[in-house]
Structure formats: C-alpha cells, structure tokens
Amino acid sequence: MKVHIELFGALREADDSGAIELDVPAQATIAMLREALQVYLAEHAPNIRAGLVQRSAFASDQAILQNDHTVPDSGRLAVLPPVSGG
C-alpha cells in the first residue's frame, strides 16, 4: 500500500513539498514503516542526520502510534521528530 507521510521540523528538509510517499506491504507495522523511511532518507536526503528517524514518532491526527501498531487503513500519517515547543 502507498503511505503518505507528512513531514515536520528537521524532517521537512527531506522534501520541499512537506510530505513523501512510501510503498509498504499491507498490514505493515510502524516499525516496518520506520525502516522503510530510514532507507528512503539515506538515499534521497543524505543531509538528514542518521538516527533522527529512530528518535521520531509516527502519529495519526489523533494519537502517537507505537512500533507494534499497524499502519492505518487511510494510509496517512505524520512523522514527528523530537519536539521543542514552548
């Protein structure tokens, strides 16, 4: 399935459009999506620090999704690097 991933913070620098699309198997977990994103960034955005994706969370509009969660059927997610508000 195609997964649309909205980018924030330092990860915005991966694509000027503010989002990327990745192909993952149906019923893929967040952990699998994390691996796929790391591979994609290593190839397409080598300036992004290795390890940033490991410290980032994946989320729907409503909640953080942990590694064992499956990718939502909507195929839409956000990837959230470490936060620094306030």
């Binding site: 953080i64 936060v83 620094s84 508000g85």
Partner: peptide, 22 residues
C-alpha cells in the same frame, strides 16, 4: 508536536534538539 527552528545573525538556521515522542 511543536518544533522550533532558530535563525542566527550569520544567516544560518537550525532546528532545536528536542524530546523524543517515541
């Protein structure tokens, strides 16, 4: 889920180090 990017007098910018939500 908030991120701060600082802009410096020399024209450089950097995203702040933060807390992991993972």
């Amino acid at each position: 889920p908030i991120w701060k990017q600082e802009h410096y007098v020399d024209g450089d910018s950097a995203w702040s180090e933060g807390c992991s939500l993972c």
